[in-house]
Design a protein around this nucleic acid. Structure first.
Ligand code: MN
Ligand code: MN
Ligand code: ZN
Ligand code: ZN
Lengths: 143, 143
DNA sequence: GTAATATTGAGAAACTTTCTCAATAAGGAA
DNA sequence: TTCCTTATTGAGAAAGTTTCTCAATATTAC
C-alpha cells in the first residue's frame, strides 16, 4: 500500500506539505530534522510553515510512513519508512543511514530481560553507530 | 572507583551542584530530565541554577558517571551509572527503569549488520519498553 | 462547480538549551 | 588555618525548538 493510499484509507487528505515531505525524505539517505526539512523545502523555492512540518511529521510517523532515528548526539531525525520491522545504522561522520532487517533477532534477548527483570516488554529501540563504507575508506587513506 | 575519585582524577572539582545531582540520581529509580532535576533540587530548599544542571549533566555523562536514557516519547533523562556495559528497560506507565547486562549479546547481530551494510560499527543504542511488575499487576486487576 | 471541512500559514507563546560574565567556592600551597 | 589561583556557579539574556491559535486556503465528496 502506497503512502497515498494509507493516508486516504485513514481519512486524511493528500496535502501539499505532506506530499513534499514524503518526496523529500524518499530522496534523502540521511535522517532529517524538522529544521533541516524546513530549510530544504525553503530552498526549493516554496517555503513551508514550520508548524506544518511538525504537524506532518507527527502524523506520518504515527501512521508508520516515516521512521524516527536518533543521531548520535541525541537529536531526532526522520526517514521514509520502506516497510517491515527494521532498525538503522548511522554513520557518525556523514549521517548516511541504512536499514537492516530486525527480524526476531532480539527475541532471545527480550526473553532473557523479561525473566531477569520481571518487566513485560513490548517494544524496543535499537540503532547502531559507526562509519559508512565511504567514510571508512576515507579514514584509511588518511592513516 | 567512586565518582569523587573519578572527578578528581580527571582534574575536576567536587562541587555542590555535582554532588547534589549525583546524590539525587543515585536515590531515584526513574530517569530524570534536566527540568525535573532542577525542580527536585529546588524542593529540597536550595535551588540550583538551571544552567548548572545542564553543565553538570553534560560533564557527568561525558565521564560515564551518568547514563542517558530515552523515554518512549523521545525525551532524554539521566540515571546514575552503576558500572559495566548495560542497557535499560523502562516502564511506560511509571517510568521506573532497570538495568540489564549488555554483555556481548549484540555481538552476533553487530557482525551480521556489518557484513550486510559494510559499515564499521562501534557503538549501539538499545532500550526496551514495557510494563514493570507492579504496573503489570495493577493492569491485571483492572482487567 | 459547490459545499463541507480538514489543513495550512503566520505569528505568538511556551518550552528547552546555550551563552556571558561577574561573583563564588574548591583545592593546593604556605 | 589562611591565602592564592582559577575552576565553577548564578542570573539573566539569548538562541533554539516545539506547540498553539485562528482566519484563510485547499482538498474531497457530491
Ligand atoms: Mn527489532
Ligand atoms: Mn550492549
Ligand atoms: Zn559516512
Ligand atoms: Zn511501572
Amino acid at each position: 500500500m502506497t503512502w497515498h493510499e494509507e493516508l486516504t484509507k485513514q481519512g486524511y487528505r493528500i496535502s501539499g506539505p505532506r506530499r513534499r515531505i514524503m518526496e523529500l525524505l524518499s530522496d534523502t539517505r540521511t535522517p532529517l530534522t524538522p529544521a533541516l526539512i524546513h530549510k530544504h523545502l525553503a530552498l526549493e523555492g516554496k517555503p513551508l510553515s514550520l508548524a506544518s512540518v511538525y504537524r506532518a511529521l507527527d502524523l506520518l510517523a504515527e501512521l508508520n510512513l516515516l521512521c524516527q532515528v536518533y543521531f548520535s548526539d541525541g537529536t531526532l531525525g526522520y526517514m521514509a519508512h520502506t516497510g517491515g520491522h527494521h532498525h538503522h545504522v548511522l554513520c557518525r561522520r556523514c549521517n548516511r543511514s541504512m536499514e537492516f532487517g530486525g527480524h526476531e533477532d532480539l527475541d532471545e534477548l527480550t526473553e532473557r530481560v523479561q525473566a531477569e527483570t520481571g518487566y513485560v516488554i513490548n517494544e524496543h529501540l535499537l540503532q547502531f553507530y559507526g562509519l559508512c563504507p565511504s567514510c571508512a575508506a576515507l579514514r584509511q587513506e588518511l592513516a
